[in-house]
């Protein structure tokens, strides 16, 4: 399910079946010219990845809007803010929360996160329409969905 009108209407009818949240963690910044392109690229492909992951497991997962934060922000403070999202999410019967991200700085704070971090190493491709990139997405979606299923 996506956090979109049509899917949410279905969700409300069938919420006992949907117990897993996919919440991508996406950094944002416009400082440091030399890094903006890379961060925006990562943002783009994490969005594609998360949507494809949702498609694979759409009957039991909800892909909510990405948790977006300023790249340089203090992670512990961000975790406090993230917890307010999670408190809201848990008003509904969600049991599993997964946070896919390319931002490796979360790894050190993983233990304090209110859900399961899925840190993926980023892949560099010239063209996101390329076969190579599609294959990368496909393989990662399969592996990560297997990981998610192991929690069910």
């Amino acid at each position: 399910m996506q956090w979109q009108q049509d899917d949410i209407k279905k969700y409300v009818q069938a919420k006992e079946y949907i117990d897993t949240i996919i919440m991508p963690l996406q950094p944002f910044h416009l400082t440091k010219d030399e890094k903006i392109a890379q961060t925006s690229y990562e943002n783009e492909i994490l969005t594609i990845f998360s949507n494809e992951l949702e498609k694979e497991l759409s009957g039991r997962t909800m892909r909510i809007p990405s948790y977006t934060y300023v790249r340089s922000a203090d992670k512990e403070k961000e975790i406090e803010r993230m917890k307010t999202w999670v408190t809201d999410i848990q008003e509904q019967p969600f049991e599993h929360l997964f946070f896919p991200t390319f931002d490796m700085t979360w790894k050190k704070h993983e233990i304090n996160l209110p859900g399961n971090l899925i840190w993926l190493p980023v892949t560099q491709v010239e063209e996101i329409q390329s076969k190579e990139f599609k294959k990368w997405i496909h393989e990662n979606v399969l592996q990560v969905s297997e990981l998610i299923r192991s929690y069910w």
Binding site: A14, Y17, I18, K55, S58, G59
Partner: peptide, 26 residues
């Protein structure tokens, strides 16, 4: 696409149910 809530089924996706399509979600 599973006709329940739309996950992707796989052929013989469950070892205990050979010769069937299996949906991992439910």
């Amino acid at each position: 696409k599973c006709t329940h809530l739309g996950c992707m089924v796989s052929w013989e996706g469950s070892e205990s149910h050979p010769d069937q399509f299996y949906c991992p979600c439910h």
